[in-house]
Design a protein around this nucleic acid. Sequence first.
DNA 1: CGGCATCCACATAGATACTG
DNA 2: CAGTATCTATGTGGATGCCG
Lengths: 153, 153
Amino acid sequence: MLGRVGCQVDTGLVLDAHVTSQAGPPEGHQTVSRAFDPELVPDARGATDRPEPDCPVEIALAAISGRWTTLVLRELMGGPRSFGELREALPTLSAKVLTERLGGLTDRGLAVREVRPGFPSRTTYRLTAAGLRLRPLLAELYRTGAALSGFNP
Amino acid sequence: MLGRVGCQVDTGLVLDAHVTSQAGPPEGHQTVSRAFDPELVPDARGATDRPEPDCPVEIALAAISGRWTTLVLRELMGGPRSFGELREALPTLSAKVLTERLGGLTDRGLAVREVRPGFPSRTTYRLTAAGLRLRPLLAELYRTGAALSGFNP
DNA sequence: CGGCATCCACATAGATACTG
DNA sequence: CAGTATCTATGTGGATGCCG
């Protein structure tokens, strides 16, 4: 693993803090006016002091959240898969959890469900364009984990 | 956002399945002999059909797991921070959870704790070289989340 | 200042059994 | 085949209060 990992710069405050001057901005998700590392916080939606659901990081985390999710995504990255094929590929994953994962992916628009009627029925799941955008993240997860485990087993 | 997201190739099986021929390999984490996308499964540790703790993806997920963890990491990426500074930066994060997060990071060797004795005491947390390796992952999380939310709101 | 000890509420995973 | 329905065990976050 390479890449720059340094830059331990301790920047001071920069932006002036005139967020909502007047009297009372009680609730609502406010962004914080501080200096942030542009690589980690490239725009305002990351400038938060709590886990806001619309922060890009939280959105990405939500997409891969839950046990088994990355494995299901790995399978779907290889092309459309039926419920049964996924069960074969991940034998110890219960039907209930697989259903939950696939439901989560389709709810988020990351996958689509296509049912072929008749009997026996056949349902296939296919990643959408949005779902396919998770590929670089999965690859980066692998890279990072491999680096953390010391470059060798 | 760019990058190739296509390649919906449905590869057939390749490797012959002679995993432990003999009689009974009952338990223990076995790797599966299938064809995997080399980008997502570059080595044997990713060729698993369940969430193995030594799979690189699981290792990386464990490093960033838990609510608030990415925010704590973002703060520490800017340089050493004391417990109190972290509380100021993340005001709605309880001391208990902050302690848990910092303990998790130090347990995994991603951060170190440095105590200055005396009174009042002062404790600073600093990312290790391993912890700094999470930076590209955090950046990728942001990129992916931003892409999923439609490139701009 | 920098925690740890408790308690509680809720979310989640897994096992099992059953259905359109 | 492709789920749903329950039930249970465990995990996790958050609030509160005490301590070195």
